[in-house]
Amino acid sequence: MGISCSQMSSSGQYSYSYIFKYIIIGDMGVGKSCLLHQFTEQKFMPDCPHTIGVEFGTRIIEVHGEKIKLQIWDTAGQERFRAVTRSYYRGAAGALMVYDITRRSTYNHLSSWLTDTKNLTNPNTVIFLIGNKMDLEGSRDVRYDEAKKFAEENDLIFVEASAMTGENVEQAFLETAKKIYQNIKDGKLNANMTESGVQHKERGGPASLGDSSSSDKPNCSC
């Protein structure tokens, strides 16, 4: 029989193939929760109460044609919770470090946030610096080029954004994912390691087994 028939193949073409864990850190009141809300809901949340704990949000994005599920942990910024929130850094693939361009003190504390991040995450964790509240140009207290310089010196990706208008918010989350994705493709980040903050679905990790709500998310703050 002279047949040449192709056989059907079935592979996941719709759903996500990676899970990236993000943390959002920075001083109290810089707008971390609002950034998360703007990213997941495309809405500004006025009168957002202080986060007392760690908020959780998720969104599926696309990078180079691959669907990626972001799991974002938005941490409390208050100094008194610092010791507790430190335990959420572990296994983060991306860290969004936020300051408020209208409050210099929040900028001055960046080095301490950076130290924590470097100490508590893996060397390939992508750190993205966000100067939030760029819509409040009139009350600006930190110059763009100054922060830009700080970012360059510390090898951070930097953007000014506004959780209020949504400007550059999407970009910050997406750029971080692109960088992480690039690190995986370059072999810098091993998606099989638990510390990497990345799960690859094809590897049969926990993400592909059972319900996402029970296995995707840590049940211990460690």
């Binding site: 007392i52 704990g53 760690v54 959780f56 409390a76 709500s213 029970s214 998310k217």
Partner: peptide, 8 residues
């Protein structure tokens, strides 16, 4: 909260 956020 199982499958969700943490409160302090």
């Amino acid at each position: 909260l199982e499958g969700g956020k943490d409160l302090f």
